[in-house]
Design a protein around this nucleic acid. Structure first.
Length: 728
DNA sequence: AGCACGCCGACT
DNA sequence: GTCGGCGTGCTC
């Protein structure tokens, strides 16, 4: 048997694959292997099989180690998923092995065979016809078993054929004629035909277009809250399921799975559906992943990691709330599941629906330039759903009492007095210490870039994160002379105390990331709210999503301005989405809630577009601004981040890198700046913004940097590239 | 990332 | 006298 040479992708932070020798039956790419690596045994995935050693530079055949074991506990990762991983590895400048590792459930990242399927094991013929032919015609019982194994069968069913059945099974397993498959999960219930809600005219129009689509066809489903986007998804899914396909549904967060899962189960009781998200136990996630890979789960509902699940009959992708930042993985392998999903739809040649009430500028541009088809839902399909009334309270004209206007205090008192619930919402998202004059509204901005300057408290310097310009903060406001310059959003920390003082009879309940970290604590708080025990709620963005409170009549929004003038150019669209979502929390059926929005900048053009609910106008204007300033999506960005024991070391590394690549054609590299969070776990961090007008120039420089820097030694410095960064 | 090897401080 | 601190070097 001739030697085979395997290229193996390993879960190590090294920008290359590793070659191994293997003696035995020809394996296929996508299979898991256990290989010796240094002094350890690691698990990897075969990405290429050669019958001749292609010869990696400076490596002879003799130096190759031998594969320890080829594992057959999972079907080989299909070529399309491998190709998807390769694309991501290229695009996001991340080692292939680590991309593949991210695409696999935990059990398949271990350097040992997965045992979890045993007790639930089912068996089926690898090739039903071939198995039947293999069995001698006179061996009636064996013929019977072979026929049975055309579909997956449990050991119980197999034993029922004959006492010797398990023996035959064992032999066939060894010969590879029969394979072990994962147990099918129970179906959701008896088939029934639920009464379908009647579609609005808009929904019907959207659906007609979706149903007519074949091949790659991206759709932007633009629909306000309550306009019935989900019903459109369900109908489109129904059609693709009926045609025998599998459907991938991506949602932003785990918290939203139970609701949506219940709705899907009720709608498709006879279809097998699995969920895939990081909240699942390892065994369950592995089983669900396998069911998707075998084509037996027809609906896969999951968070961003699900975008990599193998699905042999993929026929439709749905990305709900496509603008949501949760689709971006923010550490390690940084990717945008929404963008990967679009690539995957093209690769699989299937339609994709990107749904949102507040689409991302990237998708909006694609729609405006006719790359995506627009499906609009303007009417509210849900009976009683009505747009909330938003009213601005100008903190310029009204006096503040510990951050609250008298009007807000009065409104809160009235609502509580009538027995209603109130949410005081603090916008912390997009928060960056942007220096402002609270008297006249002046905001420290860069004279060269028009972007906001960021106040770094450590050394009391103002810095531009786009070009690197810096200066000490001014002592007085350059416009009005006011000496009290404070970062926007300053002072919201004391809000809870202030509210407790103002409303001693209704103790405020604060809900944020910090006090809901413990498992179950969020549920307990939500219960309190539903029972009406807590009526004055203080919350951050996690309160904006998903949770509906029937008695919530008033929402007071504080500190919207921090989002309005964040240094992050994407902050406004996020603020719009956030405020729209928060506003949607208020109001009972048939009775719109009231939203009070405190702002210093009440005459900013942003607010009329928010209050009228005209997101299209806002998006078009925002896009124009982006185009005029050559900001994404009209240019492409990447962030080179470095950390070292001292900021000095990190910065000098970045300066040196900048000197070497700044002349690269079609490219601009900014000066290094300290990261927003300078110190983290004993490391000090800095970054350089790279921008290019054209994607190929960016790809070229990233590849070049990666190769060059990867081959060099930079002692004491850890660096990484972040493509399409969201935090700048 | 691991996991070695390699040279300098407080402990059985 | 050793156990172990983490600097740096390598992994087909």
């Amino acid at each position: 048997m001739p030697d085979v040479y395997l290229q193996v992708a390993l879960d190590v932070p090294l920008q290359r694959t590793f070659d191994y020798r293997f003696e035995g039956e020809l394996p296929v790419p996508g299979l898991r292997v256990i290989v010796p690596f240094g002094r350890q045994l690691l698990c990897g995935v075969i990405v290429q099989v050669d019958t001749q050693f292609a010869g990696t530079a400076g490596l002879s055949v003799e130096q190759l180690k031998t594969v320890h074991e080829v594992l057959h506990d999972m079907p080989p990762l299909p070529n399309n998923v491998l190709a998807l991983c390769r694309f991501c590895s290229d695009y996001y400048a991340w080692p292939l092995g680590q991309v593949i590792a991210a695409a696999l459930p935990g059990a398949f990242r271990q350097p040992q065979a997965w045992q979890g399927g045993k007790e639930l094991a089912y068996y089926a013929a690898a090739d039903a016809a071939a198995l039947l032919q293999h069995v001698p015609a006179r061996a009636r019982r064996q013929q019977e078993l072979a026929a049975l194994l055309a579909a997956p069968r449990s050991l119980d069913e197999i034993r029922a054929i004959s006492p010797s059945a398990t023996g035959w099974l064992k032999a066939w397993l060894e010969e590879g004629r029969v394979v072990e498959v994962v147990a099918p999960t129970a179906l959701h219930g008896a088939p029934l035909t639920p009464a379908l809600p009647e579609l609005t005219e808009e929904q019907q129009t959207a659906l007609t277009q979706l149903e007519a689509a074949h091949g790659y066809a991206p759709f932007l489903l633009f629909g306000v809250t309550g306009s019935g986007k989900t019903e459109v998804y369900l109908r489109a899914i129904e059609q693709r399921l009926a045609a025998g396909g599998q459907v991938l549904v991506l949602i932003p967060e785990i918290n939203l799975t139970p609701q949506l899962e219940a709705r899907f189960k009720a709608r498709f009781p006879q279809e097998r559906m699995v969920s895939l998200h990081s909240g699942l136990a390892d065994g369950e996630r592995t089983r669900n992943w396998l069911l998707a890979a075998q084509g037996r789960a027809r609906i896969v509902l999951g968070t961003r990691l699900a975008v990599f699940a193998p699905m042999p009959n993929l026929a439709l992708i749905v990305v709900d709330e496509e603008h949501d930042l949760s689709y971006r993985q923010q550490e390690g392998f940084r990717y945008s599941a929404r963008d990967v999903a679009v690539y995957r739809a093209r690769q699989a040649n299937v339609p994709i629906i990107l749904g949102s009430a507040t689409p991302s500028m990237e998708s909006w541009r694609n729609m405006r330039e006719s790359r995506y088809r627009l499906l609009t839902l303007k009417q509210r399909a849900v009976t009683g759903a009505r747009a909330p009334q938003i009213q601005l309270l100008s903190t310029q004209q009204l006096r503040l009492f510990d951050g609250l206007t008298q009007n807000a205090i009065t409104a809160i008192r009235e609502t509580l007095g009538q027995g209603g619930q109130v949410l005081v919402f603090i916008n912390r998202r997009g928060y960056a210490p942007v220096l402002a004059c609270h008297e006249c509204g002046w905001i420290a901005s860069c004279k060269r870039c028009t972007s906001r300057l960021v106040l770094h408290r450590e050394d009391r310097r103002l810095r531009c994160h786009h070009c690197g310009w810096e200066s000490p903060p001014p002592m007085h406001c350059p416009d009005c002379g006011n000496a009290d310059l404070q970062p926007l959003g300053f002072g919201t920390q004391r809000l809870e105390e202030t509210l407790a003082d103002l409303f001693p009879d209704t103790p405020p309940l604060r809900i944020d990331r910090d006090n809901t970290r413990r498992k179950g604590s969020l549920d307990a708080m939500l219960q309190q709210i539903h029972k009406g025990e807590a009526r004055l709620l203080v919350g951050t963005q996690m309160m904006a999503k998903g949770h509906d409170f029937a008695n919530l009549q008033l929402v007071v929004v504080l500190n919207a301005d921090a989002g309005l003038f964040s240094l992050d150019f994407r902050a406004q669209e996020r603020l719009y989405a956030l405020l729209l979502q928060v506003a949607g929390r208020a109001g009972r059926a048939g009775q719109p809630g009231k939203v009070l929005l405190q702002t210093r900048y009440h005459d900013d053009p942003f607010y009329p577009m928010l209050i009228s609910g005209d997101y299209a106008a806002f998006a078009d204007r925002t896009l124009q601004e982006r185009k005029a300033n050559l900001l994404p999506p009209y240019s492409t960005w990447a962030m080179l981040r470095a950390e070292a024991k001292t900021l000095q070391r990190a910065t000098s590394f970045l300066r040196e890198v900048r000197e070497r690549w700044r002349e690269f054609p079609g490219l601009h590299m900014a000066q290094p700046v300290p990261a927003l969070m300078v110190r983290k776990a004993g490391w000090e961090r800095a970054q350089v913004l790279i921008s290019a007008q054209r994607r190929p120039a960016m790809q070229a420089v990233l590849r070049d940097m990666l190769e060059t820097l990867g081959a060099e030694k930079h002692p004491g410095v850890r660096w990484a590239l972040d493509v399409d960064p969201v935090d700048v």
